[in-house]
């Protein structure tokens, strides 16, 4: 079975400005693939190259074994795209826009539009100009899914949606995936990618730094500990295996930890605590501490 998406040394420069450099990855058909990185890392550049909105400086990108640039219209029949920010024509009603969108695909999408709009609680008779950002996003979602695409490309899909709608949206995407659709989504929120995706590619400064199964990522994920003790402890009290970025400031000890959680638990048990918190580091921290750190130590 051919890959749903396949890129080979995909590189894009905007003049001299870096877009993406040597991005190589494959997405299996039927997979849910996450693409995460901080703003400006190259997520949208990659997606826009896949969609042939921009053209690569070098390297190749293929979708369903078709060349993204040469066969763009052929590919587009099977791809649904939800842009990060949705913009639509002035003065159009939601229904007009969706019908217009459907008219590009040679199939009847009427029932599907009604079903999707019903689930997203989207009023088809409203003017798009009058919609809130979140509701415009819903138009984008229906628009991207109305032709039952084989590949769904989502660029920061949940921004602007309230948590309830996010849940409905995730259910919808999971349902599409069960139907057989491949999902490629970009995000800067690790949580939502972890929740949906099978594998994740992490992009930073235009380069792919890591491609991991979500299950593996979870195992290797760091926790950030903030500890305040009642009595001073030796500065190296928490300097056990797996601890990184240890900062001791009087009674407070801050560090990142990865490894067997029991070693820290044992240490904690031996100390008299005043306050304590352990949290998931945000994505920025993972980049700052984990990936750059790993590059240094190796």
């Amino acid at each position: 079975m051919p890959y749903a998406i396949e890129t080979q040394n995909l590189t894009k420069y905007y003049g001299k400005a870096r877009g993406i450099i040597d991005v190589t990855f494959q997405v299996e058909p039927g997979e849910m693939f996450g693409f995460i990185g901080p703003n400006g890392a190259g997520k949208s550049t990659t997606i826009r190259t896949l969609l042939s909105l921009i053209y690569p400086t070098s390297g190749t990108a293929k979708i369903f074994s078709l060349d993204c640039r040469r066969d763009a219209p052929e590919i587009a029949k099977r791809v649904g795209y939800l842009p990060g920010e949705v913009f639509y024509y002035d003065g159009m009603k939601v229904r007009d826009l969706l019908d217009y969108s459907a008219s590009f695909y040679k199939k009847d999408c009427k029932d599907r539009i009604r079903e999707l709009a019903g689930r997203m609680e989207l009023d088809l008779n409203k003017k798009i100009d009058d919609l809130s950002f979140g509701n415009k996003k819903k138009v984008g979602i229906v628009q991207g899914l109305l032709h039952s695409p084989d590949l769904i490309i989502l660029d920061e899909p949940t921004s602007g949606l309230d948590p309830l709608m996010q849940q409905i949206f995730f259910d919808l995407i999971e349902q599409e995936n069960k139907r057989g659709a491949t999902v490629f989504m970009s995000s800067h929120i690790l949580g939502e990618v972890q929740r949906l995706c099978d594998r994740v590619a992490i992009i930073k400064d235009g380069r792919l730094v890591k491609l991991e199964r979500i299950a593996d990522l979870r195992q290797s994920s760091f926790k950030r500990f903030h500890i305040e003790t009642a009595r001073p402890l030796p500065a190296d009290y928490f300097a056990v295996e797996g601890v990184r970025e240890l900062e001791v400031n009087g009674l407070t000890h801050n560090f990142l930890f990865r490894g067997d959680i029991n070693t820290v638990a044992a240490k904690l048990a031996g100390a008299e605590l005043a306050n304590f918190s352990a949290e998931e580091p945000d994505l920025e921290e993972i980049f700052l501490h984990y990936y750059t750190g790993e590059a240094h130590s190796s």
Partner: peptide, 14 residues
Amino acid sequence: TLGTADFLLTKPVS
């Protein structure tokens, strides 16, 4: 300027 190019150019037309 409207930003609709993303919509139009990802449709199956050359």
